[in-house]
């Protein structure tokens, strides 16, 4: 196991599955009366969030607390960053307090990778700009595995604003690691450049026409709707919201066609949802929807990640220099 979790690609298939299996026992804990275990007693986890977040930050905080770690939340707005302190100085200042893990969300792609070069603590990427969000991909995989079993050969379709989506990037990596086939659908303006090189790999397809994917001979096991990230757009990606919905929204009618081909199809959304834009309320609340399962899995998966990164003897991890842990 690596020291940091920056990218979904940091995890091998074995490590990914190990985390997901651990998450199963963590999920059992969540259903108990007493939800606390002493596993990370004495460890300190700092949540350093430079961007708004509800579910990621709260689930990391709960995950740490249920494992008896001390968790502290820092937001960019309330910290010295707003006085002009650089990311490097902020990270090194917190690291100097001998914390064990830094959970970082930042608006800049690559921020977590940078911080990992500067600190002794384990760095966990909780979303960096348009790069990655590995724990989201893990909890999506967990939700899928709970419903579908092993994902080898399963057909997962991701639809929406791919260009701005870190969820999409991490999910494609994790799903491919687990052997699933992935089709990504987006309007041409929201299809990331360079995706052509990805499409060359086995079991990965791209498309501009959602209806063609739904009506193809290849039934869909799960459809993951991605949020249209208006805050990252400076306009011009699509003419009107209505037009986006007509072309790429999961409407009741599209859901009915998906169900007709595969009654077991799952509807996913990483949240927060723009109801009526990328997903209709009918689809979000349909029996096929596992949106709340995803949230529920979030705590268990983050407990598993903290456990795998923090529980063992530091000196036995592959990439830690003895001098650092001494």
């Amino acid at each position: 196991m690596t020291r940091h979790l920056i990218s979904s690609a940091d995890l091998s298939r074995e490590e990914t599955i190990a985390i997901l299996e651990t998450a199963v026992s963590m999920h059992d804990l969540q259903r108990r009366d007493v939800k606390k275990v002493p596993t990370l007693r004495g460890r300190t986890v700092i949540n350093l969030f430079f961007e708004d977040s509800t579910r990621t930050r709260s689930s990391f905080e709960i995950a740490g607390k249920w494992m008896s770690a001390d968790t502290i939340n820092l937001s960019g707005k309330g910290s010295s960053t707003s006085k002009g302190e650089s990311l490097r100085d902020t990270a090194r200042t917190i690291d100097a307090m001998s914390v064990d893990a830094l959970v970082i969300r930042h608006q800049a792609s690559g921020a977590c990778h940078q911080v990992a070069q500067w600190v002794r603590a384990s760095v966990i990427n909780a979303g960096d700009g348009m790069h990655e969000h590995p724990t989201q991909a893990l909890l999506d995989a967990y939700t899928l595995r709970t419903r579908l079993g092993e994902l080898d050969g399963r057909h997962i379709v991701l639809v929406g604003d791919l260009t701005h989506s870190r969820v999409f990037r991490s999910n494609v990596i994790t799903l491919k690691t687990l052997g699933a086939r992935v089709t990504v659908v987006a309007p041409p303006t929201l299809m990331p450049s360079g995706i052509g090189t990805w499409s060359a790999t086995d079991g990965f397809a791209t498309g501009w026409d959602l209806d063609a994917v739904i009506d193809s001979d290849d039934p869909v096991d799960a459809v993951m709707m991605l949020r249209v990230q208006r805050e990252r757009m400076s306009g011009g990606y699509f003419p009107t919201a209505r037009e986006y919905t007509v072309g790429y929204g999961l409407t009741r009618e599209r859901l009915e066609r998906l169900v007709a081909r595969n009654p077991e199809v799952l509807v996913m959304h990483p949240g927060p949802m723009n109801r009526g834009l990328e997903i209709a309320a009918d689809a979000a609340d349909a029996p096929q929807s596992v949106v709340l399962d995803q949230v529920s899995a979030g705590v268990a998966v983050r407990m598993a990640v903290l456990y795998h990164l923090l529980a063992g003897d530091e000196s036995t991890r592959d990439d830690v220099e003895r001098s650092v842990s001494a």
Binding site: S25, D28, V37, P38, M67, E314, R317
Partner: peptide, 21 residues
């Protein structure tokens, strides 16, 4: 009854996978 999460020697050994109880 899996006791991995309650061990007092977790930090002395490589990470052990936890099992379900």
């Amino acid at each position: 009854l899996d006791i991995t999460l309650y061990r007092d020697d977790l930090r002395r050994h490589p990470m052990r996978p936890a099992h379900r109880s």
